[in-house]
Design a protein around this nucleic acid. Structure first.
Lengths: 154, 154
DNA sequence: TTTAAAGTCTACTAAATATATAGACAAACT
DNA sequence: AGTTTGTCTATATATTTAGTAGACTTTAAA
């Protein structure tokens, strides 16, 4: 799991949109300048987020973007997987992006990586964009609400 | 943290050398063919491991490589950091490889990544190459020996 | 003392990935 | 009609990854 700039930008944009959830449409330009994201790069990112259903847009003057879902319905895990692929450190050990890698035969090593994948996935799946905005509940306190032992790894 | 092929090869080579610890020198060629690693690539990797003091070598006919330390003195964390850099998902949150990234200002997000870094680092620092060879203790049972709450993150 | 078998060193290359940028086009509002 | 905003496709550039090539050095055995 290595987060790319593209993925960081996607998170920043979603945080911005989450902070303005309910306020109507916001323009790419204001996301870009507020969060310091190259505008044309951001456009491409937003299209991906739109295709996946996280945001909606409207064209034309007075157009813009908004979240398609409430911030607490979008998890960090989903967004990182969408932008960067597997959360696992090696694809041999990825549920959603499996691919053979050189260490394929080393069961001990794979076991370690599987464990890390499970932790990382579980942690990121518990974080939503509501947890990431100032004013939202903190990721430390809140997650007790909801399924307690849910371990949906990936 | 995304493990490169180079790093996977380094781990495979060290596992092989750990399996032959005490048996004298082994040739690059046998590591390469047993573990299916491109030989010339492996040469470069072994030089890095040698510079860092994990292996020793001898030139000439009947030359070869051996571990410079017992397998339980080399941790997975060290090797991954050496080959791939930071264990953290973003460098903003890396202890040993800090660098600013776009999410620099998002404290909530950084907090999540810091937590992941801490877990990953602590986990990988508890695994040694003794744990990774067949016949070695398993990474699940043994680590109780030694400092219990040691959280040397990075 | 030559020769062969190793490791060492430096350079190069090819492909993939990451990080954008450019510009024409389409829709919506005024 | 004209301006503003999002959309789409292509291109560009840089970096990283994953190797390959070949000359050089050291060691031991013939």
């Amino acid at each position: 799991m290595k987060i790319s700039s593209k993925c960081e930008y996607a998170c920043l944009a979603l945080i911005y949109l989450a902070e303005h959830f309910g306020d109507g449409l916001v323009k790419i330009q204001s996301i870009a300048s507020t969060k310091k994201i190259p505008k044309k790069f951001l456009e491409q990112i937003l299209i991906v987020l739109k295709q996946r259903g996280y945001v909606k847009s409207k064209k034309g003057a007075s157009g813009g973007y908004r979240l398609a879902l409430p911030p607490d319905k979008i998890t960090l895990a989903e967004v990182i997987r969408l932008m960067d692929g597997a959360l696992a450190p090696v694809e041999s050990v990825s549920k959603y992006f499996y691919e053979p890698t050189p260490i394929e035969q080393e069961e001990r090593l794979l076991g370690v990586f599987r464990e890390i994948r499970d932790y990382v996935a579980a942690r990121l799946e518990r974080i939503t964009f509501r947890d990431l905005i100032s004013g939202g509940r903190s990721g430390e306190s809140g997650p007790r609400s909801g399924k307690k032992t849910a371990r949906s790894s990936g």
